[in-house]
Design a binder for these strands. Structure first.
Lengths: 351, 351
DNA sequence: TTGTAGGCGTTATCAA
DNA sequence: TTGATAACGCCTACAA
């Protein structure tokens, strides 16, 4: 079997008895070509199995019809959902999404951005607003439209959700239920401003309520179920274990519930758990997880749209703040008498 | 603020006082350039903020250093995990992964393949071996190295897992536990040969054991937790509900467990559930899910490697069959006396 | 409505 | 070790 030599525009033109320019037009703006020639060209193209060369096209036109997205990881219900939305929105406009991930590593993110830029993307979607100045500079000088998601920045357009408020809402919910000792199982704050902001929100709410969130009651864990379990175990091993814990993301919260149950600690009676994200699974586990709902799909869609608008010429920088809200389910409950009693004991014992 | 005009190879060359060719070499094979000039060029490039133009590079060199991957959906623990592995393996060799998804739609898959081909990918990773002849032809004539995953085909290299055997193993496990009435909650077989093969495997095992899997005990559901719950509900609503059910993928199986529990049906005492995939979550839920383990990460890595080898020139077509095995956990149990009794009743009542 | 011609930014072949 | 100089395949004024 012969390796088919690449058929190019010229070949199609030849076959159809027209010039290359006409074939090019037939593809880009069919309305500028007479119906007959158009039909002839299309037939030839199909017959020869012509596939345009994107590189040549991009080089000549200056547009790649591709949008890059750089996310921390693909292995996450949240990001994969957002990406799915972006993909849908973009492909409807003829754009393709190029995805890269960096595993929560700042240098790897910079590298991914550079790669995508090299690839000539017409726009870039980023997660989070925390990166080295040199990376910001790279973005700025590239002149490529940018959409920053999840966290806001005044450097570029952004489509965000108030992470600090999410943490606050989660904490406030527990405070309202009478909890005094609250723990937090979160992801590493290293290169994750979403987690950092959420924790800050929790701390703020607690402080305002006259409570505190000592370091001993905050644990950073891998963003997996196993991480949630470990984090919960750590909380339960404290001298004065919390009566409620907040997961920095739902997966962590679900891990907490699982760990508690594996120790026959009833949720929410003996331990309240609240998460942030509200992924599909959260509504289905037992007990259903109370969580702060974030419009993840909407973030993706809106970011994609923002990019499309920027490409179309709209230039004023703006940030779109999407609404979030608590979804109260069954994993949280009012602090029980037993707990309150125990709390008193511990408190007096320690003071 | 001025929109920085794109700085090109020529600019760097000028700035460094050398020719464009030398700069090009400095980037591609630094060892061919004298240390001093190399240093000078690098300094200039950095100072000017030079970013190579991938399109021009691809056009001139004929390689894009990009590999395309077309998956049914990003919204799946299985595929996102496999993609993550591919990404890791490929980026180590300087390749970037371009991801597209098609939502289990055959035409959309063909479209995605065409887009990626247009984009000039140096290789393509596909899921499943079921597609229109025209699509196969497109792939063939493109001459691009291909790696088909999950299901085998004799058309191209493939990295697979024996899906039929997976179904068989799951069913056999239940048969060994004494179950007679077994149900299957699977995904639509429409454009999903993995699900079709797994079901076929289940049927084979049952037939061999003198049992059967009537259509009434097979239900196709969306590949989500909600789908699993619905499917389980349907099974339980039958006149003679099964004593065990197999999920076509773990998510479906987990949905079944959740649904059963929401009806106070104890798993595995009153209902055994087994899945196929063995995702992270499966080992953590209660009861931990018995499942047929598929080496998903390995599929991704191996497929990526296969492509790399093909690009490097290795041409003999082959298929790599990765081992699978049952991971027995707590969601399955021997058919209880109560059930056996009930079974007898029903049987006699109906015969 | 269609054709001509120049150029897009790099790579790669040859000389020097 | 470095520098000219063709490609690479397509797009897009501009001209016809």
């Amino acid at each position: 079997m012969t390796t088919t030599r690449k058929v190019k525009l010229q070949d199609v033109a030849h076959h159809a008895g027209v010039s290359a320019a006409t074939v090019s037009r037939a593809i880009a703006r069919p309305e500028l070509v007479s119906p007959e020639t158009l039909a002839r060209i299309r037939a030839s193209a199909a017959q020869l199995g012509y596939v345009p060369d994107g590189a040549a096209r991009a080089l000549a036109s200056g547009k790649s019809m591709a949008i890059g997205a750089v996310v921390p990881t693909l292995d996450s219900a949240v990001f994969s959902h957002a990406l799915q939305s972006m993909q849908t929105t973009l492909s409807r406009q003829g754009y393709q999404l190029l995805i890269a991930s960096h595993d929560y590593n700042s240098a790897a993110e910079a590298e991914a951005i550079r790669t995508l830029l090299t690839r000539g993307v017409d726009g870039l979607i980023l997660v989070g607003a925390q990166r080295a100045d040199s990376t910001w500079d790279l973005l700025r000088t590239s002149g490529v439209p940018i959409a920053v998601t999840w966290c806001s920045t005044d450097r570029f357009h952004s489509v965000v959700v108030d992470n600090e408020r999410a943490g606050q809402i989660a904490a406030q919910h527990l405070i309202d239920l009478g909890h005094k000792r609250i723990g937090a199982v979160i992801g590493a704050r290293q290169f994750n401003d979403r987690q950092a902001a959420r924790l800050a929100g929790m701390q703020r709410a607690l402080r305002k309520a006259g409570l505190d969130l000592p370091d001993s009651r905050v644990t950073e864990q891998p963003l997996t179920l196993a991480g949630g379990r470990t984090g919960c175990a750590r909380m339960l091993a404290l001298d004065d274990p919390p009566s409620a814990v907040i997961g920095g993301i739902d997966i962590l919260a679900i891990g907490c519930i699982i760990e508690a149950q594996s120790r026959n600690i009833v949720v929410p009676t003996a331990l309240s758990v609240v998460g942030i994200d509200d992924i599909e699974m959260s509504g289905h586990i037992f007990p259903p997880l109370t969580s702060v709902h974030l419009p993840v799909g909407q973030i993706g869609e809106t970011a994609a749209r923002s990019l499309l608008e920027q490409i179309a010429g709209q230039k004023e920088r703006n940030t779109i703040d999407l609404p979030i809200e608590l979804v109260s389910r069954k994993s949280t409950a009012r602090l029980s008498a037993a707990h309150r009693h125990k709390d008193g004991e511990k408190k007096s014992a320690r003071n």
